[in-house]
Design a binder for these strands. Structure first.
Lengths: 209, 209
DNA sequence: TAGATTGTTAATCGATTAACAATC
DNA sequence: TAGATTGTTAATCGATTAACAATC
């Protein structure tokens, strides 16, 4: 449990390892070596070994590598896929609704327990079985339900206010889809998800061809 | 035009700068200095200066900084927001439909000209005015319309096949929302967008509190 | 035993940040 | 002129990759 510090990059690779291992398992492979995994995923072999060492509670065996099943269990445990976390989403627009409707979140350990919006037309409706409440109730709701993670899918102009209310309600981490950098205190983690940022990398590549 | 190599991190920050500058402009600010910008965006001041130097075609003036309007124009130019790029999307599920319905893409220089899916129920319908075609026609369509960027929103199992068809059709860059690492040749850029990866960073933070 | 694979220490690489002279 | 800000060179930091002894 008391793992050492794990780099952000390693964390982001873990879901790809997991997916790969699950595919292996469905083909009934029992063991896997880091070099094979590295080749299949187009990653450096030492990188894979270090990543695995960081999350695996058993050492690999020279010559044969790691047990697939154990590795899967360790990664899922590490990522918290086994104890579902309750989260709220603020902003029931196109993107917000898409996230609420996405079936894959339970598999990665999160469940939306409520959505929040300002639009009176939406308040007290449901999206995919999830109740939409007034943003006025956001802090209170989070505090009462002990919500620690909030997803922000409102336009940029409203994002900071929403963020402040989430934190006021006890949130410790924010998943921010608004194209703006939020101001938060040291101990709060903001993970930004910005379409324009990703696209920037793609566009530059295309412009250089 | 023949800019020097720009780091991926710099590229990803550019949209945040742009958004910030546009907000400034709407408040009628004429000039801005790197230190002020850095403070407002919670970034290191040298980082901001280097980023601006990389995209600005005019040097900043000591004491007064940069002209807001010029900076906006330079960043928009650099990111290609002024000449719209035609793209296709494959996989008209929840996420795919959300992206097709999102109004903000034209502002960041891309336009969906067609979506592709295997579901006969969807083929030949429209989503937000965008025609949905059969995946069988993907390569042909891309080649005919000279599409260089494809967005993949199909499940993991189908993603590699879709990727291959896009490249066969002439795509040079792939925006991949499937939770799998795609195999492509050296000259193709894949930008991965993986919910589980982002969430991993958030979960680990929450587990350590 | 021989050899593939492990875990770890050392070298490299790229990005960030600190230090500082040049300039308006 | 004095001082804020610029652009750039050097130092630091963290992540990646190379090298290698240990092990089954």
């Amino acid at each position: 449990m008391a793992e050492k510090n794990i780099s952000k990059h390693t964390l982001q690779r873990l879901p790809y390892y997991l997916h790969y291992l699950q595919a292996l398992q469905s083909e009934n492979a029992a063991r896997i070596s880091a070099p094979t995994m590295a080749a299949d995923l187009h990653l450096n072999e030492v990188k894979v070994r270090k990543d695995l060492a960081a999350v695996s509670h058993v050492a690999g065996k020279p010559k044969t590598g790691f047990e697939v099943e154990t590795l899967i269990a360790d990664i899922e445990d590490f990522l918290g896929y086994n104890n579902i976390r309750d989260v709220v989403l603020v902003g029931a627009g196109h993107l917000g609704r898409a996230l609420l409707s996405y079936k894959g979140f339970e598999a990665i350990g999160i469940r939306f327990v409520a959505a929040f919006d300002n639009d009176p037309q939406l308040i007290n409706t449901e999206i995919n079985g999830i109740p939409v409440l007034s943003t006025n109730e956001l802090s209170k709701f989070c505090r009462r339900k002990k919500i620690h993670l909030g997803v922000i899918t409102v336009p940029a102009t409203g994002a900071q206010a929403v963020c402040d209310r989430l934190i006021e309600g006890g949130a410790l981490a924010i998943w921010n889809f608004a194209p703006i950098r939020l101001t938060v205190s040291e101990d709060i983690l903001v993970q930004n998800e910005n379409m324009a940022s990703s696209l920037a990398v793609l566009s530059e590549h295309l412009n250089n061809r």
